[in-house]
Amino acid sequence: MNSRVIAEQILHLGHITSREAMVLGLTPAQWAVLRYFARANRFSRTPSAFAAFHCTTRGTASQTIKSLEAQAYLTRVRSEADGRSARLDLTDKAKAILAHDPFEALVRAADALPRGARGHFASGLQRMLSQVARERGKPVFGTCESCGRLEGDGCSSEGQAPYVCGFVSEPMLLKELDNLCINFVQGKRMTMTGSVTGATPR
């Protein structure tokens, strides 16, 4: 298939799933914030990381995030390490409304693809995202399971996690490995000892 046709189809998919009018009282920008925080790992659930992911300004990102905090969709959790930094977590209210996200139409379309095709498609899209991000000088986001900084063999002794993020020296559980991370570096996809299911809002 012609490369321009592929690029146009990807762009069109984005338009028809993100340019919805107000749905359940939330704007497209607010939906984008909720989707991001549902997928981001605990190291990446910050306003600055969201701004980097969506290539927007920190000011614009902060305004949208504050509006969702005011509506009780997001809650701020202070870091136990220093007490100054904080991460943003979805509330139960946010998890419930994400089931009605207009973006789910695209998820269902992807799920309808054959399993083998999904794997090749995901790999191809990641390569495209990485190339465009590098050309634009933007950070490349990805998941732990294909990150060069993930350490461990999936085996764990009592009281220890099976994987470790080598960038922040923090333990990682199997269920966290398909979450988005701002510290991602492309590496060889690991063979996991358990199944990593699709991320669910936390």
Rank of each mutant, 00 (worst) to 15 (best):
D92K: 12
R118H: 06
R58V: 11
F50S: 04
S130A: 15
Y36D: 00
Q126V: 00
Q30P: 02
A109D: 09
G83C: 09
F50Q: 02
S195N: 07
A32P: 02
K95L: 01
F37T: 00
A21W: 00
F37V: 00
C155K: 08
P28H: 04
S48L: 13
Q9G: 03
C144K: 00
R58C: 09
T64D: 10
D92T: 06
S67A: 15
L173I: 05
E80A: 09
A32T: 00
H120S: 08
L106K: 04
R134D: 02
V132N: 06
S146E: 01
F121D: 01
I6V: 14
H15M: 09
L68Y: 02
T64H: 10
G152D: 03
G14V: 13
V140I: 15
S62E: 06
L174T: 14
L74F: 08
C144H: 13
L125G: 04
C165W: 03
R108W: 00
Q126S: 03
A52E: 11
R84C: 06
V132H: 12
S195I: 11
M172G: 01
T91K: 05
H120L: 13
A81M: 06
M192D: 13
L129R: 10
T60N: 09
R127L: 13
L125F: 13
V5E: 14
A32G: 07
V23Q: 11
N41K: 04
I16P: 01
W31A: 04
A99C: 12
W31F: 03
R78Q: 02
P28E: 01
L177F: 05
T17H: 14
A7E: 13
G124F: 11
F103K: 01
A29I: 04
R118N: 05
K66N: 10
E145N: 00
I97Q: 05
C55R: 12
R76T: 15
A199E: 08
T60Q: 12
P102Q: 07
R58A: 09
P171M: 14
Y163E: 05
A96R: 12
L13A: 07
L34N: 08
A199P: 01
A81P: 01
P47A: 12
R189T: 14
A105S: 15
I65C: 00
T60F: 08
D92M: 02
G119C: 03
L90D: 01
A61H: 00
L11R: 12
K188C: 10
L98Q: 02
S146C: 02
P201R: 14
Y73W: 01
I16V: 15
A122L: 05
L34V: 13
A199L: 05
G119F: 07
H15G: 03
R127V: 08
V196R: 05
G154S: 07
F103W: 11
P47Q: 12
G187H: 08
L150I: 06
P171F: 12
L26D: 03
L180M: 05
R19W: 10
C165P: 03
G137M: 03
L173K: 13
H12M: 15
E20K: 09
D153K: 04
R108E: 12
T57I: 04
E151Y: 05
F50C: 07
E158S: 06
A109T: 09
T56Q: 11
G187K: 07
L173F: 10
E8I: 07
P114C: 08
Q186V: 06
C144F: 10
G124E: 06
M192P: 09
R136H: 10
R39H: 11
A161Q: 10
S44E: 09
L68D: 04
L113E: 14
K188P: 00
V140G: 04
R45V: 04
K138I: 02
Q9C: 12
